[in-house]
Design a protein around this nucleic acid. Sequence first.
DNA 1: CCATCTTTGTGCACGCGTTCACAAAGACAT
DNA 2: ATGTCTTTGTGAACGCGTGCACAAAGATGG
Lengths: 217, 217
Amino acid sequence: MPTVSSEELAAAAGVNSAKLRKDFSYLGSYGTRGVGYDVEYLVYQISRELGLTQDWPVVIVGIGNLGAALANYGGFASRGFRVAALIDADPAMAGKPVAGIPVQHTDDLEKIIQDNGVSIGVIATPAGAAQQVCDRLVAAGVTSILNFAPTVLSVPDGVDVRKVDLSIELQILAFHEQRKAGEEAMEALPDGLPAAAAAKGSADQGPDGDVPAVMPA
Amino acid sequence: MPTVSSEELAAAAGVNSAKLRKDFSYLGSYGTRGVGYDVEYLVYQISRELGLTQDWPVVIVGIGNLGAALANYGGFASRGFRVAALIDADPAMAGKPVAGIPVQHTDDLEKIIQDNGVSIGVIATPAGAAQQVCDRLVAAGVTSILNFAPTVLSVPDGVDVRKVDLSIELQILAFHEQRKAGEEAMEALPDGLPAAAAAKGSADQGPDGDVPAVMPA
DNA sequence: CCATCTTTGTGCACGCGTTCACAAAGACAT
DNA sequence: ATGTCTTTGTGAACGCGTGCACAAAGATGG
């Protein structure tokens, strides 16, 4: 039986082993003292708790470059997501297959949502169309929306929205880049930014809190 | 002179006003007591500190759907980013304009980086090519990399990498969706997940910590 | 069956960030 | 000028998450 210790996992993930064990303990006592965690069982338990074992049908609205990129993205299927439909407002796109799935017209949006029991929608339209698409998705029964359009969507209570801004990550890199460049002239700067200085040596690859939280619109 | 108070900004951003004032104070004392902050001056100071006033030439490597979507993304220019070049390994793409910029071949990668003084690279290639492209970018002088390929890149010290996984946000939505669905049957579940339960009512649209940190690969 | 060794699960303490609360500062009216 | 009123900037307290350290649990070998 293949096992891992919290120590091994912690080293691989770059976190403290005690924190990892405490996190796991919230899911239950799945480890064996003196041995570690049964890999297969642990993966299953975490997957289940995270909802990876379920089948999540999603629709992608707006099949431009980004929508097509998402439709072709291989990482969805392995995480339980199934692209149930692609929807675009351009009649010329209708019927054209993208990633093996024929694009359908916006007119049929409500029917598509209901027929497939979709509760998660992805918006990859231009900014101008996003709110309108969002409203229709919500009215049709969608309760979670992933928004790639550069607009803040307003939704009724009970609907989750997550906004993905592709330039934010780039901005974080630029922020660190600026720090690197200004390091030799650090003392010459008018003010120091403690939070940023502390994060100077961060070597992770994740979207974690290593940049000030407040930004201008 | 248009001004805003910390109270107004805090309400708009959904944070505590004291925290906002303290954050601003790290940048200097830009407010006026009894009045608030001069909007224009404040925006400038924050922009400067964040590096938005600088010109950041970036290259995008891998001009598939995603690369094209990034090249067309309007949000870059306004944040100080300038797409200096598009690079692809496919000779058939060479010369073809995407978003008004002619695609160049990978062979010229080093020269392009050096001629344009590029320090930030975006990788939108298939997973198999990512590490190789990364190595060449780093060797050519790039010190910050935004990675859209589903691979963890290894880089020497001093190089920043940020990995963007388009399915993670979707997974967070699915996690909350599962919670919503299981809410009526909450007591029937074998275990509760305190962190998730606490985040139940979160209504923000940002990638903040409202989901467990550790995940299986 | 007992001893030893490994690794988990967790109480406890420390440290950091958030929030409270207030004095200082400045605008504005009289 | 002087007083009042608003809002900043920040010292201090609070709360939460992280990390330490160890007892309990179980495997493994003699």
